[in-house]
């Protein structure tokens, strides 16, 4: 009964949990929005500038791929985030809090998302692209009317995966001053040995990820007519 009693009396839950949850949502929301905003065109660019793409620009493709691979593969996310604190300060004026953390979260996940988008776009058959070109499409029309709509189920799945990843990363961001559920779990669960807060945080994260996944799957099915 102690555990259940604790659930309704523990200030870590009754007072700190809700704001922390909102901060997590805020971080995920802001960085998710900007990741898609930048990552989608970047994914298109990666595909179209590649050899055999609509507008092959080999040097640009090599540069973009190089940057992306290095950000995602070489630098651990925690280090990337710390190294981006000065940049975040420059951009949003603060170095702490969910908004500042969103900057590094966005930069950290854009390459990941762009790669997923590129691979979803690559699945659009060349026959469809040829058909669009033969009908007199401009390259922009091919991209906007064929590539993206035809790859939409894949792009939505990529967005879902990215948001789930962001929820996880946002917890890590919490440790370095981002706030949110990660911070809460660390402060209460780790430093104060408060197991109840730790468990509740974990349950909330699991439920949140599940909800995002269900919503994403539902949306992807909705637009998938294949």
């Amino acid at each position: 009964m102690d555990f259940f009693n604790d659930l309704v009396t523990n200030p870590g839950i009754t007072k700190a949990m809700w704001p922390a949850f909102l901060e997590t949502l805020q971080m995920t929301g802001i960085s998710g929005f900007f990741t898609v905003l930048v990552g989608l065109p970047l994914g298109v660019l990666l595909l179209n500038t590649a050899k055999g793409g609509l507008t092959p620009i080999p040097w640009l493709n090599v540069v973009l791929s190089g940057i992306i691979t290095n950000i995602t593969r070489s630098i651990p996310f925690a280090i990337l985030m710390l190294s981006l604190i000065p940049f975040a300060t420059l951009l949003v004026g603060v170095s702490l809090g969910p908004v500042a953390a969103s900057v590094s979260l966005t930069i950290g996940t854009i390459p990941f998302f762009a790669r997923l988008v590129e691979s979803a776009l690559r699945d659009v058959s060349t026959g469809k692209i040829d058909a669009a070109l033969v009908m007199g499409s401009t390259k922009m029309q091919v991209t906007r009317k064929v590539l993206v709509p035809e790859a939409l189920p894949g792009i939505i799945a990529a967005t879902t995966t990215t948001v789930v990843t962001l929820i996880g990363y946002s917890a890590m961001a919490g440790l370095v001053g981002g706030g949110g559920l990660g911070r809460l779990a660390y402060n209460y669960g780790f430093q104060r040995y408060d197991g109840t807060v730790m468990i509740v945080t974990i349950v909330i994260m699991v439920v949140l990820v599940q909800l995002v996944q269900i919503l994403g799957d539902w949306l992807a099915r909705l637009v998938d007519h294949r």
Binding site: S125, G127, K128, D130, A131, L133, V134, M135, G136, V146, P149, E150, L152, V223, H225, R226
Partner: peptide, 17 residues
């Protein structure tokens, strides 16, 4: 190109349309 209409082996329709 618009002067030549083309029919493909696998139709190549857009699945999203």
């Amino acid at each position: 190109r618009r002067r030549i209409g083309m029919v493909f082996q696998h139709a190549n329709l857009m699945d999203s349309r």
